[in-house]
């Protein structure tokens, strides 16, 4: 656990925020897909919320780490009260990361809602290497489409909302019909599962899984993802993930 200083905590819209926090030189080595955990209340002696919450490293700005978060319950609500120079407890880097040593590849990035969070950093690492990148980005309504200014360098952006308030009306997975060599997917489980059905069979798929976590470091076995390997295997989302081969995940065993 380390103490970090809030550099800024900006409201994007009613539900989405972006927050920059000071980081150690170790944390600044974050790779796209890595996550950190935050104690979301200022005072460490406050026991509600009790556990730390997980957030993807969204971007790195100078000596700071940026996270993008959506207000869900008491933990993320608590984050919105933080102001410049407040101190919070952080831990991480945690988890594995997306394969970002790619050149000359046709790449799809597929995001649902807050699933966009890890992708600004990923795109930073993938552009300028002759990669061709399509971004597919779906949400319930226009407020779920954020951070578009971070994706100026991708080749195409496809946007859908379920109510049609931004982009095309419908589900983002309905618009995937090109062939890719690798796809990176982050969003609700049903959306990730459907992306896999829609992508061409030769496409490698890396998904970022969001399971509830108590510890984030492999102690509790609360965050299990089943993988179809030689035999069915229990993997820990926090330690073995959160990035998994999407074709091996046993989606039926996940609640959502």
């Amino acid at each position: 656990m380390a103490k970090s200083k809030i550099i800024y905590n900006k409201k994007i819209n009613d539900n989405y925020f972006t927050m920059s926090i000071s980081a150690s030189s170790e944390t600044l080595k974050a790779k796209p897909g890595n996550f950190i955990m935050l104690k979301t209340n200022k005072n460490n002696l406050v026991y509600d919320p009790l556990l730390r919450r997980s957030f993807a490293v969204s971007d790195i700005e100078e000596d700071n780490i940026v996270i993008t978060y959506k207000v869900i319950g008491k933990g993320t609500l608590g984050l919105t009260y933080l102001r410049e120079n407040d101190i919070i407890e952080t831990s991480g880097l945690l988890g594995n990361y997306f394969n970002c040593s790619l050149n000359n590849k046709r790449i799809a990035i597929i995001a649902g809602g807050i699933g966009i969070a890890p992708f600004p950093l990923l795109v930073k690492r993938l552009t300028k290497k002759n990669n061709f990148i399509d971004l597919y980005y779906g949400g319930k309504s226009k407020n779920d489409i954020v951070l578009l200014d971070k994706f100026k360098e991708v080749d195409n952006i496809f946007i859908t909302t379920e109510d049609g308030s931004k982009g095309k009306k419908g589900l983002i997975t309905d618009y995937i019909n090109r062939e890719y060599e690798i796809a990176f997917v982050c969003g609700p489980n049903p959306m990730m599962m459907h992306s896999i059905y829609k992508l061409n069979e030769t496409c490698e798929i890396e998904v970022s899984m969001e399971e509830r976590m108590a510890c984030g470091i492999g102690l509790c076995m609360g965050c299990i993802v089943n993988l179809r390997e030689e035999t069915m295997k229990n993997k820990k989302c926090c330690k073995d993930g959160p990035i998994f081969n999407g074709r091996k995940v046993v989606w039926q065993n996940l609640n959502n």
Binding site: Y47, D48, P49, L50, L51, E211, R212, A214, C220, M221, G222, C223, I224, N253, L254, N255
Partner: peptide, 12 residues
């Protein structure tokens, strides 16, 4: 099966 954990007031 999952989900296996849930946080409640000051508890898990």
């Amino acid at each position: 099966p999952m989900p296996r954990i849930v946080e409640t007031s000051a508890g898990l």
